[in-house]
Amino acid sequence: MDPSEQHDNTDDLERRLRAAFTAKALQISDADLDHDREDEVAAALSSQHRRHPGTRWFAGIGAAAAAAAIVGVTFIGLHGDGQRQVVNGLPPASTTASSSTSPSGATTSSPSSSSGGLVTPLRHPAYQSKGPTTTLPTSGDSTASSAPRSETTTPPEATRTAMSGGSSTMSTPSSSADSSMSIAAHQPPAMPSGLPQSKALDDREYVGAVPLDDPSGGAKRMLSMPSKTSWQRTAESGNSLTVRLTYLPTDIEAYWRQTLPSQGWVADGAGWKYPGTSYAVSPITDKGSFTVTW
């Protein structure tokens, strides 16, 4: 084939590609789109957009407060002797009171899991025929990323709203609330005791969070999973559990990237680990399996 003929063929192929792509793309018109969903997304995007200046304003106050604190610390440093005299003159009770307030966050962390345990049983036709399905909690499953992120300390369930249209891919956590509660515990979220723990698993299909044992023997922990995700146990040892995903309605890796950091997990290569503990999640294999260790 001479160069000019080859050039003509390429031009023709390019023309055919453009025509085919255009024809296929233009099959979708505005009328074909899910307008309820569109409205909700647009509302979520615009409500957050309006909030943005306010957020900046609060950030400005925070920065000013931080600057004032720095000035104060510097002042104390420069006038330390005088300050010590004042402190020495105070009754001892005042210093005791300030130090006793710090641990209070620890006790507020445990309820985070109970909110995650409120999951309706899955009725997905794809595995109705596979025998009994046990529903486990899915921490953060019922959240939607369209919901405006709360700037207050409202409990997570109060900040969560469901995205319409059953689009499971949109489930993401309201991370600001989750992070403040879960990280304080220095443990993954707790698993409600009334649901199957890792030692109670059998070969059935389970839906929702994957249970983790707690090496300290306290409350059982869990690994959050996207809503409606189902899995089966494939192997179990004293300190690990391997599961195979059997139904995955969304990108689990993206879900974990959005959810786990707010609970205190950190990425470890393609997997996850929980700093200061032995909890870890292996990367997902190409067969849809992964292992959790504790």
Binding site: A126, Y127, K130, R244, L245, T246, Y247, L248, D286, K287, G288
Partner: peptide
Amino acid sequence: TVRAHLKVA
């Protein structure tokens, strides 16, 4: 992944 391993879905 789903097509390879999860025929039911």
